[in-house]
Amino acid sequence: MADGKSSCADGFCQTSVHVDVKDYYGKRLQTQKDLQTNACLAPTKPVPPFIREALKKVHPEVSDKYYGCGLVVPECLEGCRILDLGSGSGRDCYMLSQLVGENGHVTGIDMTEGQLEVARTYIDYHMKEFGFKKPNVDYVQGYIEALTEAGLPKNSYDIVISNCVVNLSPDKKRVLAEAYNVLKDGGELYFSDVYSSARLPEEIKTHKVLWGECLGGALWWKDLLQLADEVGFSPPRLVTASIITVDNKELQDILGDFKFVSATYRLFKIPKGNDKTCQTIYNGGITGAESSFQFDCHYTFKANEVVEVDAEVASILTHSRFTENFTCQPPGGSSTSCGAKPKTGIVDPFDLALKLDKQGQGSTTGGCCGPQSSACCK
């Protein structure tokens, strides 16, 4: 199933996986109630008020036909150009269009015409609802493995997001490579997806329902680290994770001892070779995180507090849209340093999910930024 070719166009070959996924999301699923696992309905922490209000303005039909996992909302969005991979019926696009404002833009790409039809039907409705004079959202039919072939220009997006979609692709390295190509320098791929505890056997990978439910195509989480490096991204930063349960006994029997987790990672397109740590001071200014900003599971920055960060984070903070929100200086350059040492090391998302579950935290949106941020995309 994962390698069966069915048709080619413009240099990209559609596989039988794409055909099966189109059928599953275009015909088989009509509402979220039709899902047979909670892989695409992972629990989340309470949603920040301004995001909750933005979601309330999304048309009910758009929300009902949306099948993403978690809530993918990175920080600092005003004026940004965002691309949503596998945008489906457009719920996240319409929510994000409010946060980027009229000077920003959101593009959704999806291969399923039925989903796009729902999304496009309500463009005028949402622009009127948001009070925008002209649309700041558009939708493109195409494959997430072939973004440039779909007409999306290289080096043009500040942020690429994806919500439980990368696992549906049979060629995940190509998805990451295409996302890297369309991102501007300093841009970010911020996405929530499903990962497995080990590489999956063909019996699971070729099961149509398990693939459609976002389990059969799940990457072993360690493979994500390798693929990201091969493509050129900075090492993935794990933001949050939550355990996925499968209540369907028939499907669980097929899955056996394999475990799954919903995890949110952030990957940046930044220069290589930075090996210097630095002390950072979070200046505040991010809506929803004015006093405390959770960057990932290692670093939560409190406003006006000096924190020493590792070289990777130092490079991200000085080459991305977060630059104006942070003051960076060489280690030892401040007498007010809290003395905290940089936090390094790979984090197992299963370990983090268990830790958060014990703390009663579940998953999270990873912190968000609304239209009042002082350092967003211009």
Rank of each mutant, 00 (worst) to 15 (best):
Y125T: 12
A311D: 15
V62C: 07
S374A: 11
S334K: 03
K133H: 10
D223W: 11
Q32L: 11
S89R: 00
G70L: 06
E129H: 08
D257W: 12
R52H: 13
K341E: 14
Y265G: 01
S6G: 07
G288R: 13
P330A: 14
P46D: 15
E202T: 12
T121L: 12
T206Q: 13
S156D: 14
N155P: 01
S337K: 09
E230K: 15
K272S: 14
T280M: 13
Y299W: 12
V309F: 03
K33E: 12
V17I: 12
V246R: 10
G104V: 07
Y122P: 02
S234Y: 13
L352I: 09
K341H: 03
K222S: 13
L255W: 01
T245D: 14
R174K: 15
A119F: 03
T245V: 11
T300M: 12
W211R: 15
A150V: 03
K56T: 06
D348N: 15
V194N: 06
Q294G: 03
T37Y: 04
D158R: 02
L219Y: 13
K378F: 02
S196H: 06
K134N: 13
V261G: 10
P330N: 08
K57S: 10
Q329A: 13
L317A: 07
T323M: 11
K134Y: 14
D247V: 05
L41A: 15
T344W: 05
C377F: 00
L238D: 04
C214Y: 02
V58A: 10
K65M: 12
L183G: 06
S374L: 08
V58D: 02
E324H: 08
A218V: 14
P371W: 00
S335I: 06
V194T: 13
L354E: 13
N155Y: 00
T206F: 08
T277P: 03
D64I: 04
